[in-house]
């Protein structure tokens, strides 16, 4: 192989190395931008729950699902992702206040994101997925399932109804539910 050939190969390799490094850098910068400016971070909560007993548990029993203002003022929404719906389908939360969302699944892996917010997590049977956020936009936000969960996956979506803080009025038991529209 002549020296000229070898130099041509090195130049070509450097060009491709630059392209590869640039691609990785752009992706990393996008991740860092999302993490800092949009507050998107991987959920770090590791909390186990038995999926076979989810419907028998106190926390994820049907009557305890939805939004509840706890005794200490903390606002928590508990949602079960099941084939093929979120229970409850519609959840009311106040704008501009810290809220906690807790999800679990009794059957298969689901996932969700709330459009236009930083809420984005998988819901894995056996675990409780927990997300903290402050919702800035009011209105009905779409919450589709984003992890293929079976033949009804494409119809599986819920609604997060964000109301101005003044219109967020929990009942005497601290619960708030979506009014029929």
């Amino acid at each position: 192989m002549s020296e000229a050939d070898e130099r041509a190969i090195v130049r070509s390799e450097i060009r491709w190395a630059v392209v590869a490094i640039a691609a990785v850098s752009v992706i990393m910068l996008a991740v860092i931008f999302a993490a800092i400016a949009m507050h998107i971070n991987p959920p770090s909560n590791v909390e186990r729950i038995n999926p076979q007993d989810l419907h028998l548990s106190a926390e994820f029993t049907e009557a305890n699902l939805g939004t509840k203002v706890e005794a200490n003022g903390q606002i928590t929404a508990r949602i079960v992702a099941t084939q093929f719906a979120f229970v409850p389908r519609c959840v009311v939360l106040p704008a501009d206040r810290p809220v906690t969302l807790r999800f679990s699944s009794p059957d298969v892996i689901h996932g969700l994101l709330v459009s236009g917010t930083n809420v984005n997590t998988m819901v894995v049977p056996g675990y409780v997925s927990q997300v903290h956020t402050v919702l800035r936009k009011t209105g009905d936000l779409l919450m589709p399932c984003h992890e293929y969960c079976g033949l009804g996956h494409s119809e599986m979506s819920g609604t997060i109804r964000v109301v101005p803080s003044a219109q967020f009025r929990p009942g005497p038991d601290g619960r708030v539910a979506c009014a029929a529209k």
């Binding site: 909560n45 419907h55 706890e70």
Partner: peptide, 24 residues
């Protein structure tokens, strides 16, 4: 430890299951 990200208050609810069948 990274968990819990924020400790949760104890759950005051009692279980009211609509079916006792468990697919264990």
């Amino acid at each position: 430890a990274g968990s819990p990200a924020q400790p949760q208050p104890p759950v005051s609810a009692t279980a009211a299951p609509v079916s006792q069948v468990r697919w264990t």
